[in-house]
Structure formats: structure tokens, C-alpha cells
Amino acid sequence: MKFMKSKKTLGVLLAAATVASVAFAVTDNKPASTNASSTPKLSDLLPDQVIVKGKGFELKQSQLDEAVSGVKANASARGQEIPPAQLEMIQKKLLDRLIQIQLFKAKATDADKAEGKKEGDNRFEMIKKRAPSEDMLAKQLKTMGLTVESLHSRLIEEATAEAVLKSKVKISDDQVKKFYNDNPKDFEEPEQVRASHILISTSDQKTGSEMSEDQKKAKKKQAEDLLKRAKAGEDFGKLAKEFSEDPGSKDKGGEYIFPRGKMVPEFEAAAFSLQTNQVSDIVTTPFGYHIIKLSEKIPPHKVELAKVQDDIKGYLEKQEMEKVLPDFYKELKKESNVQILDEKLKALEDAPDEVPNFPAPTPKQDDKAKGSK
């Protein structure tokens, strides 16, 4: 829905650094350069200074450096460079995030911890699913001083912090209904298709590099053989689960639901031109060879309230969480006697508060398909 994509969520404030550090979530499955990791940094040779202390916790310089490195790595993977002025504001927000997690964790009930564990696990599985392989994910994390296990733990910590803040807000059914009625255009869905595909990739699944012409010929022959089986009436979903090389859809029998403008042109044109239950010929895209089967054409319509009420409630909760966050954070900082020991960071903390444009998606961002833009 439009309202879910167009407005900021608390995930940007509390979880951006962790998700940003995993470039697989926002790039074309290419790991960031590992050259930087081979050169020792000055911070590796000096004592790890305590930069923040409060009741029952301390934060060290390395923790902040690691978070900043994650944001930088994500920006670099996108071909972007963060201006120094913006980097200072990002550093301020990341420091706040690290402090918030410690303070909120101390307030977490058993219910908050259970919800945080569940949501953290979901985010972790989403990141693993987007990575081309567990090995490449581990290598990517290693360049930022992380492991798969530490990433998982951090996601759970952040989700637990969100659960604590979420417990401070309540959204009624009447508020949900009012938002739905006041924003009718946000719930209008354009024409869509429900289609399944089998992808025979022409890129190496481990390195991402393009295959040789001979390898492509062999792949096309494989696609042609599968096309014959699909057109002969074999179960398309089973063929996709067994042979498709699109990790984002093969476990679902290759199925996607999408409107125009979401897939690469060749894939979109073929899918929208098919009749219900028709199987396409081989469709070639930069990702490889596709066989597409159309299951349903979905006309433009307004989504029923019952189908979106949970999404609306979650969105309104996040809005309210952002409102209560400053005062709740200030209260807990005072209660825990939080002290910023680094003078430069203290000056940043006292500066006017602005939300930086983190170069990262929220953990809730929809998976992009092989064949999507």
C-alpha cells in the first residue's frame, strides 16, 4: 500500500544501521569491496575507549564505529558518498540508537522479549533469504566486523527495543477505520497479475558474474527442455520448486503478484500478454531465461479494510511511537544518569535534532524478485 511505502517508520531510526550494514538487502547481490578490511585502522591499534556510560551499561567507541561503517558500506554499495555534514548527523542518530537499545532493554518485560525475539528472527530470515548464499552473507558481514550470529542477536535487540516502545501506545479500531476512510487513494490497487515463473539463470550463483556463451547455450537447452514439460501439462509449481534459480520465489512455486512497472520490461510484457493458465515461450532478460505461467489477472480495485487493518494499525503505532520516543528517551536517560564522555560526541548530542536520510530500507521492505527492477 502507498501509505506503507511513502512515510518514515521507526525502523529507520532504531534498525537502519544493522539492516544498512547488509548490502544484500538493497543491492544486486554483490558484496561490498573487501579491500578496506586488509588495512589495519588506527582504532584497531588504540585502546577501545568508553564513550557513554549509564546505570548498568557502557558503550565503547568500537560499537559506534561499527554502526557507522555499516551505513558507509551500504552507501558505497549503492555508489553513493555521504557528505561530512550528514555523516555527523547520522553518527548522532546512531549513538542515540545504541543508547536507546540499552535503556529500552532494561525496561523489557517477558512479553517484550518474546515479541522482540519473534520479530528479530523474521528480519534475520528476510536478510538470509535476500543473500545469494549463506557463505556470501558471512563474507559480507566479515568486512564490517560482524558475524551471522552477531547480526541475528542485534536484530533481536533492536526488535525488543521497539517492542518496549510499542507497549507505550494504543491504537483503537476506530482510529484504524478513520485512517482507511480518510485516505481512500492509498488503498487503490492498479491492475495486477498473479504469475509464476521458472528462472534458469545466466549468472554464476556464487560470484554473480555472467556466464560464458557456451554455458548460456547449455542453460538455454535446459530451459527449452523445461518449457516442453510445462506445456505438456506437468505441475508448474513443482517444476519451479525443483529447477528455478530464483531464490525469492522458488519455494512458492515461482509465484509473484505484481502491477506494471515492477518487473523488467521483457518479463512484464510477457506476463501481461498471457491468457489465464497460458504458459509463455522462453523470455530472455538480463537475469537469464524465464518460463512464465499466468494464473490470474486482477483488475483495479480498492483493498477491503479487513485485509489491511493490521497494516494500518502497525503504521499508526509507529507514528505514535515516533511521537512518544523523544520524551520517553529523555526520561530514561535521566533515570539512568546517562553520560556522554567523548566531548565531540557530547557536542553532537546537544546539537538540534534532525532525522538523517539513512541510505537503507526498513526491515519491512518487500523482497524484490529476480526479474524485478
Rank of each mutant, 00 (worst) to 15 (best):
Ser172His: 09
Ala16Phe: 14
Lys220Gly: 03
Asp311Arg: 07
Lys217Tyr: 08
Ser6Phe: 13
Asp281Arg: 06
Asp135Ser: 15
Gly288Asn: 10
Ser201Ala: 13
Gln102Leu: 01
Gly56Cys: 06
Lys297Leu: 02
Ser209Tyr: 08
Ser203Asp: 12
Lys118Glu: 15
Glu354Pro: 00
Leu165Glu: 00
Glu81Cys: 00
Ser244Arg: 07
Lys55Leu: 10
Met136Trp: 06
Leu64Trp: 01
Ile298Phe: 03
Glu255Asp: 10
Ala111Gly: 03
Lys216Leu: 02
Thr285Arg: 04
Phe243Glu: 08
Ile340Ser: 06
Lys139Ala: 14
Val19Ser: 02
Gly254Met: 06
Gln80Val: 01
Glu134Ile: 14
Ala218Ile: 05
Pro352Asn: 04
Lys93Leu: 05
Ala23Asn: 12
Ala218Asp: 13
Glu320Ile: 04
Met89Phe: 03
Tyr289Ser: 08
Lys178Ser: 12
Ala195Arg: 04
Ile101His: 13
Gly314Val: 05
Thr39Asn: 05
Lys217Glu: 15
Leu227Phe: 06
Gly233Pro: 05
Lys93Glu: 15
Asp186Val: 06
Glu58Leu: 12
Lys8Tyr: 13
Pro356Arg: 08
Lys228Gly: 07
Lys219Asp: 07
Ala223Asn: 06
Ser33Ala: 09
Lys178Pro: 03
Phe243Met: 01
Leu137Asp: 05
Gly253Trp: 03
Asp204Glu: 10
Glu58Asn: 13
Ala77Glu: 04
Lys293Asp: 05
Gly314Tyr: 04
Ala269Met: 04
Gln365Ser: 10
Leu137Lys: 01
Lys373Trp: 08
Ser153Phe: 07
Gln102Thr: 02
Val338Cys: 13
Val19His: 13
Gly233Phe: 03
Arg154Phe: 00
Asp112Lys: 02
Ala369Val: 06
Leu141Met: 13
